[in-house]
Design a protein around this nucleic acid. Structure first.
Lengths: 337, 337
DNA sequence: GTGAAAGCGCTAACAT
DNA sequence: ATGTTAGCGCTTTCAC
């Protein structure tokens, strides 16, 4: 493996000069720099990150802790982070907590603390107090994306407000019989998120003077198939049906749409359905939703951390509220008289 | 940041002993080891990966190059890799080629070659000859998962054979009018894969003496929505319709199912549909498929690389064929007389 | 503008 | 069983 010495010898200068030249530092004459660059390229030289990391204390790596890598929200955030990191020449170490048999403890105690990363992005998970302290004790810049955790700044939509707006939209259309598709995620989603959204839903109902209906508070576990099942079960019940369903995510909403189809119901004729996210599939399903942009949230998180690391003037110490807005499509309409 | 010196001083031994004790090497008395362990824990000491990497030449990191992180196949493979790596105390650096604006070149020229990883797993992408040479020139153990690339060993199902089996199954049910939902992936999927599957499809047709139907060779880009659109377009056409569709992936097959629903067709009554994968959603849709197990493929890939790194006796120099088998569900049946 | 040399925090060979 | 010491490949003063 070609080292800085090889380049130095080949160019007849000292390794110090090679180092300066290649990193674009001042005090290297332009001709020398060109020559060294050429030789380095030719030799296929790349600095060892271990060595330079040791010397500088920087790893040029960012850690990303995700509860799962198989949900649209997380993968989209990851892609956003990735796009920013690559341009900054940073690499990303992915800590996937949810993979089958993945023992969280190891991640927190060994890997992350392994001084491998300069900063940390955590995607919307539920930390134990101990885990949180572990993370904070590293002293690295850190930010959460998604659900809020006490003591850690975060980027995310106004969960409660967004759920409320969605519900108000349905109420505005004339719906009085609205079911809620919520519930925790198996995979470690921050429990604040479904809770807050549920609160927003209930806020809207209460303000409109509508009584909530315990039987219609469904649990879809943020999963399409689970939601399809539970909504099918709802539609099987005797007695009055809701005229609308508000789901905590588009994946769940789509599950609900499929259940409606399973029952031969028409959307939005027999049942209005809406979600939160603006998932890739939502347009194809004509799903009305409260759109958010996880890609941008991830990108912003990465940018903030990079700013922190570079001591830039833009340090944000506080959480930032990500935008979300109503996207009307064809899955919602006034209820049939 | 507490270093090995701190631990040594606190325990009244030399750094060498600390190093040995913490790594479980022989020649440390058990009492001493316990004591050192305790003190290290108490101080929150973790070895710097840069320093130990420099000294050993090992990074304890594996690189994973993925064309995208937002498709079921890739994320599932990644989770498989991850589960093995975590148990081996390896970390994973993710190189996502497809993220919007992600310029491949940077990945290949800088990051990966940055001597940051001990080995490399590439997920089913299309390399240019130059890229491939770049990768091979690092001299690291390397393996591909998914599509084959000349000169690199890989793990993957028998693409052509699986497609042929699927088609033969449909033919066995009595279908003579079968459409194929294939086509390249936008996101850099290895182009061999759709090609081989298409060949397998045509093989089966030919052997059964069925003429292929150019108009029924559809392009679904491995995407659910694209497939839904293109199948809807197919079903809009005047003239005879196919009685069955074989899709290159379950996501595409589900798109086709939705298109059938859009047209009020019943499955499998009016149209049989099958795919490849056994996607998470497939069971819920009752989709017949050629099931494969990407999680296991990823795990196996990681294991092979770890074996290589440890000079284990299990070195596999050759590619390995991953299993796939027919999973009959309710989306397929004999055609209506 | 360039070079020499002292670390960065470990590991491993060699002493003891 | 434990300690000493020479690197690993860079970056960064400090000289020149």
């Amino acid at each position: 493996m070609t080292s800085i010495d090889d380049v130095a010898q080949a160019s007849g200068v000292s390794i110090a000069t090679v180092s300066r030249a290649l990193r674009g530092l001042p005090n290297v004459s332009e001709p020398t720099r060109q020559r060294i660059r050429g030789i380095a390229d030719q030799l296929g030289y790349v600095a060892s990150s271990n060595a330079s990391g040791l010397a500088t204390g920087r790893t040029l790596t960012m850690g990303v802790v995700a509860p799962s890598v198989s949900r649209w929200f997380y993968t989209t955030v990851i892609e956003g982070i990735d796009s920013v990191l690559r341009h900054a020449n940073y690499d990303m170490i992915l800590y996937n907590l949810a993979s089958r048999g993945g023992d969280r403890e190891r991640v927190f105690h060994r890997s992350i603390l392994r001084k491998r990363t300069d900063a940390l992005i955590a995607l919307c998970l539920d930390f134990t107090a101990d885990e949180r302290d572990q993370l904070l004790s590293i002293g690295h810049p850190m930010i959460m994306i998604g659900g809020p955790v006490r003591g850690i700044r975060h980027i995310g939509i106004d969960e409660r407000g967004v759920a409320r707006s969605a519900t108000e939209y349905l109420i505005g259309l004339g719906h009085r019989h609205i079911a809620h598709l919520g519930g925790d995620d198996d995979e470690g989603l921050n429990r604040q998120v479904p809770l807050e959204r549920r609160r927003g839903f209930l806020d809207a109902l209460r303000d409109a003077g509508i009584e909530s209906h315990d039987d219609w508070m469904l649990t879809g576990r943020f999963s399409l198939t689970a939601s399809r099942d539970v909504v099918n079960e709802l539609l099987d019940r005797p007695g009055p049906r809701p005229t609308a369903i508000f789901a905590n995510s588009d994946e769940m909403a789509i599950g609900a749409m499929l259940a409606a189809l399973d029952h031969g119901l028409s959307i939005p004729g027999d049942l209005s359905i809406m979600g939160i996210d603006n998932h890739d599939l939502s347009e194809s399903f004509g799903l009305t939703t409260m759109a958010q942009d996880p890609f941008e949230q991830g990108a912003l998180g990465a940018r903030i951390l990079l700013d922190d690391l570079n001591g830039g003037p833009l340090k944000r110490k506080t959480s930032v509220r990500a935008p979300a807005q109503l996207l009307e499509r064809t899955s919602t309409a006034p209820p049939r008289s």
